[in-house]
Design a protein around this nucleic acid. Structure first.
Lengths: 227, 227
DNA sequence: CTGGATCCATGATGATACTG
DNA sequence: CAGTATCATCATGGATCCAG
């Protein structure tokens, strides 16, 4: 149970933070737990390429640091891992790294890369949060070919991405698959209007227009320095 | 010269970002280059504990990734390393990690930890940026016992920390040493008013009061979730 | 099936010493 | 000042196996 205390021995809050979350894979685990609580095998699938040994080790470190807690219910097989409040406080860290990656490595998938629609949706949600909030709350539903569905919703405290669709009437319903959705989002915004292949957009014409307008800021919403 | 291409092979902008800056020591190098251009030995001193081999390797990776450039002038021994615009874009990443560390690991130095006033000043500057900007620009000078001096200045685009003191008339002048300054800032804000040992504050009484008021938000300025 | 543990190979990092 | 060289150690990856 003893932790790998690989320390920097610096009196610096950045170094202290990196001692907790700087190891390989750690922030990717946090990324996936920010979306929702997950089981070990959920994480294995989302983190394609991690070995069970390393995942176990990262989850233990995060638990010891108080960033993750394991939910083990008697009579239930699975263990659900979820972030503690301290773990959720890492959201700004993950978001700033997402934005940097979008800006400086925002290219379509390389051959062999594992693709999960959810990670692209997370990047989209963060990008939307960098743009002015819409005057009226918006609700978009996204249905993927593997039967996963997500809701993107704007609210007073920004955009949220949730798993599944809720009962609120959506302004736009997107039906697609991971591959088409990836090609759609990684294409230049001008090209997204002309009947994108593999994507069905349903909703009032004005709402679809508004949807495309918001997406036009993706992936280059942030700029500390000009592109 | 060949890169350490330790990739995740995920189509995820967070993973792409971590491939560039996720290695041990890398973000600490960026932290120190965000303050000013530095020489190899400057970095060795600030990064106490890094080996020259690892520092060389990190600087090469950062150069290959286009985040750092080396300034070698003919007839000059030293090499000055500085961030490129893409490297400076990492400022939000470093800042969010600083804030997380302040909030969740903001304890006084542990025995054996290397202490540099500059890293605490960086954390202070970031914290000041989280609070409402002062109505009028403020200038504080800080003189340390080792003859290093810094200027903290508020402006339209937030607070800046610069090396040395400029010619503008300061509102407050602080004279101290690294140890006393660390104890001062890591003490509860109430305790900072009563004649802190090892610190001399000069300036009009109202300006010193304003200085202490701004510092009262340190180190707990940020909160995504309540403390 | 989920949630791991074990063994071994390899590569990244650390300690120390030395050099153009 | 700005690194290299050498050697030792530790973390990670790959594959396989196991208990509830």
């Amino acid at each position: 149970m003893s932790r790998n205390v690989r320390t920097y021995e610096h009196f610096c809050m950045l170094a202290r933070a990196l001692e907790q979350v700087g190891d390989r894979w750690t922030l990717l685990v946090v990324r996936d737990l920010l979306g929702a609580p997950r089981r070990f095998t959920d994480l294995m699938a989302l983190l394609g390429g991690i070995t069970p040994k390393t995942l176990t080790q990262r989850l233990r470190s995060l638990q010891d640091a108080g960033l993750v807690e394991a939910d083990r219910q008697p009579g239930r097989r699975e263990v659900w891992y979820r972030l503690t409040p301290a773990g959720r406080d890492l959201a700004p860290v993950v978001e700033s790294l997402f934005l940097w990656g979008l800006r400086h490595a925002g290219r379509p998938p390389l051959p062999g890369e594992v693709v999960h629609a959810e990670h692209l949706l997370a990047a989209l949600r963060i990008t939307l949060d960098q743009t002015p909030a819409p005057r009226r709350p918006l609700v978009w539903h996204l249905h993927f070919a593997d039967d996963r569905a997500y809701t993107l919703r704007s609210g007073a405290s920004g955009w949220t991405l949730t798993h599944g669709i809720d009962d609120a009437a959506p302004d736009v319903v997107v039906t697609t698959d991971t591959h088409a959705w990836t090609r759609f989002l990684m294409a230049p915004p001008e090209q997204r209007r002309s009947d994108p292949p593999g994507i069905e957009l349903r909703g009032r014409a004005g709402e679809i227009e508004r949807f495309l307008e918001h997406l036009a800021r993706f992936p280059y919403a942030m700029s500390t320095n000009p592109p």
